[in-house]
């Protein structure tokens, strides 16, 4: 049994090959090895959602996902969404609705918000709250976050092409 494994994956569109300790979770791999520190660790039990990022296009908890199990996967972190049109709308809405204070939950919150906007275009406030239940925010009371997501959904409903 080896205590190191070699993995190949893409991170933010770039191919990466690296040696990892099997016990290292994906968030630590990204933060410590690739210095992508936008993915935050809030609990490391999969509860708070701060470490949420995209694996193969779907939001996932990077603190309870082993890096070694991501061989062959496509991982996207918050740093990769500067040019993403949905995320640009969400960024503007988060700022306008004061949906962030300390900013620690924000990257994970945006990942979930983007998933809601793209997967559930019809979501109302109640559904948005249910979908957000896996992302804890200790600062905002969620009011601004729910409003921001609603704002983006409304804007997109009025402009279905998303352009």
């Amino acid at each position: 049994m080896s205590d190191r494994s070699t993995i190949s994956l893409t991170v933010n569109g770039e191919p990466v090959t690296a040696e990892v300790e099997p016990r290292q979770h994906l968030a630590d791999f990204l933060r410590e090895k690739l210095l992508l520190t936008g993915t935050h660790l809030g609990c490391e039990h999969g509860v708070c959602g701060a470490c949420t990022l995209m694996i193969d296009g779907a939001p996932a908890r990077s603190c309870i996902t082993l890096a070694v199990a991501c061989d062959g996967a496509a991982v996207r972190t918050i740093e990769d969404f500067d040019d993403d049109p949905v995320m640009a709308e969400l960024r503007a809405a988060f700022s306008a609705e004061h949906a962030l204070q300390c900013g620690y939950c924000t990257p994970g919150m945006l990942m979930t918000a983007r998933d809601i906007v793209t997967r559930l275009p019809e979501a109302d406030a109640a559904r948005i709250r249910v979908e957000l239940s896996g992302n804890l925010c200790r600062c905002t009371g969620y009011v601004g976050i729910v409003n921001a997501i609603q704002r983006v959904l409304k804007a997109r409903a009025g402009n279905p092409s998303g352009a």
Binding site: R23, H25, H45, V47, I64, L66, A69
Partner: peptide
């Protein structure tokens, strides 16, 4: 066995 690891993950981390 690892089959998703969403409950095993936290237990490993702890």
């Amino acid at each position: 066995l690892l089959a998703g690891g969403q409950t095993l993950g936290p237990m490993l981390n702890l």
